Computed example of a mutant assay.
Amino acid sequence: MRTIAEINDKISRQCAVAWTVEELKARVIEVGVTQAAREVDIIATGTFEPMESSGAIINLGHTDPPIKIRQCWMDGVLAYSGFGAVDLYLGATQVAEEAEESRAWGGGYVIENLIAGKPVHLRALGQATDCYPRTAFETTITRDSINQFYLFNPRNVYQNFVVGVNGGDRPLFTYLGPLQPRFGNAVYSNPGAISPLMNDPDLQLVGIGSRIFLGGGIGYVAWEGTQHFPLQKRLANRTPIGPAATLALIGDAKQMSPQWVRGCYFKNYGPSLMLGVGIPLPVLNEAVVAHSAVLDQDLVAPIVDFSIPRRVRPTFGLISYAKLKSGRITLEGKSVRVAPLASLYLSRQVAQTLKDWILAGKFLLSEAVAPLPCDRAFLPQDLGGSQLTMD
């Protein structure tokens, strides 16, 4: 029906038709897939959720005399410095090393503050060499006083995830947040039918080089994400029944906004980063609309008991996102309250913002330079040979 070049021409002339993914789903119910596919050019999807496998590449610029940084702290948070002399990688989940009361502070907050233009204290120790004689450096940096500052996130935008519950007798503090004992609550992470990759189940539209909304700026799909598992079992509609595809993302943090990049902290687990990601789906043919018409009642996630401290935990079967979003599920005869980890409201706002950019001619689509692999297995690190005793 269309090519990306044709769609971009319409965007440039501000005559493209863009809908949010929820508008698309509603229109399909009204007029069907075929008619909806004739009417729309781009489907805007979005999510806003914790994405802990995230971080920032930062280049400080050289001091006088120069320093070869080998240890560095930014507002008390250790940044990795084991490559260029003044290149750093600040991980979103790195915990502050200072006083105990600072344990609720970490890399995600430092990234947010830098994006917001706030000052960040930096302390560095160097390895003395003939070309880098300086051994210590302390200063205050801002977004505008450093060179490169971009997010490089190894794993974002899970295609699907799990529902966490706790069948044990004590509270558990997890990457899904607190799970109350004896199935006191349940938490799900993925936003379901509005989630970007749920609407492109076989990764036909999203590939390496795809332009996206990232943190309020322009970003790109850099590679497959870590733990990318497209071979996950799937329903007849091709959506996965658990964690599946992931994306590695990159984007200029100097363009971003703290509205869409926020530090967060999970009690007794650690810091992380709430991140807004929007992915445009070009309507190249009718099949794109058919996949994007999927509803929450047609998507499922596994209910996993986190009280079993093993890599493979027992599950209580699959449950639809429609039931999850109702706010209560039934588990072993008990009514259990449910909450999303993703912000459904802000996920919708990401999609709406991306749609607005497209309609204003400010966001063009990009052709992928290579497809994402669809044959990756998920390899665990089990102990081989003799068992080791862990003290």
Rank of each mutant, 00 (worst) to 15 (best):
V300S: 05
K254D: 02
Q180E: 15
D305S: 12
G82V: 04
L295Y: 11
I4T: 04
A56V: 14
A193V: 11
G84T: 09
A287E: 09
S326T: 01
L179H: 06
T239F: 01
P50A: 06
D9W: 09
S272Q: 07
A36Y: 01
L122H: 01
F378K: 04
K68W: 11
I329D: 00
N8D: 04
Y150K: 14
L125F: 15
L354M: 11
R311H: 13
A287F: 05
L344G: 10
A301K: 01
G164C: 09
K233V: 13
P196H: 01
Q204W: 00
C374W: 08
K355Y: 08
R123V: 15
Y109W: 08
S195P: 05
G216T: 01
L273P: 00
L231H: 02
E100F: 08
A26C: 07
T139M: 08
V221P: 06
M1E: 12
E30T: 14
I329L: 13
D9M: 14
A37Q: 02
A290T: 09
Y188I: 05
S257V: 01
L344I: 15
I43K: 03
I329S: 04
Q127Y: 07
Y158N: 03
T3K: 03
P65L: 09
G107H: 01
F378A: 07
V187T: 10
S343Y: 01
G168A: 07
A5N: 15
T3P: 06
I250R: 05
D252C: 02
I43F: 02
A186F: 11
Q159H: 06
T45K: 02
V350W: 00
N237P: 03
S307H: 05
E23I: 10
L114N: 04
P50C: 07
L359Y: 12
I69K: 01
D356V: 06
N199L: 05
V157P: 00
A253G: 10
T20D: 10
F48S: 08
R13D: 12
I308D: 04
L205N: 07
M390V: 15
S335Y: 04
P309N: 06
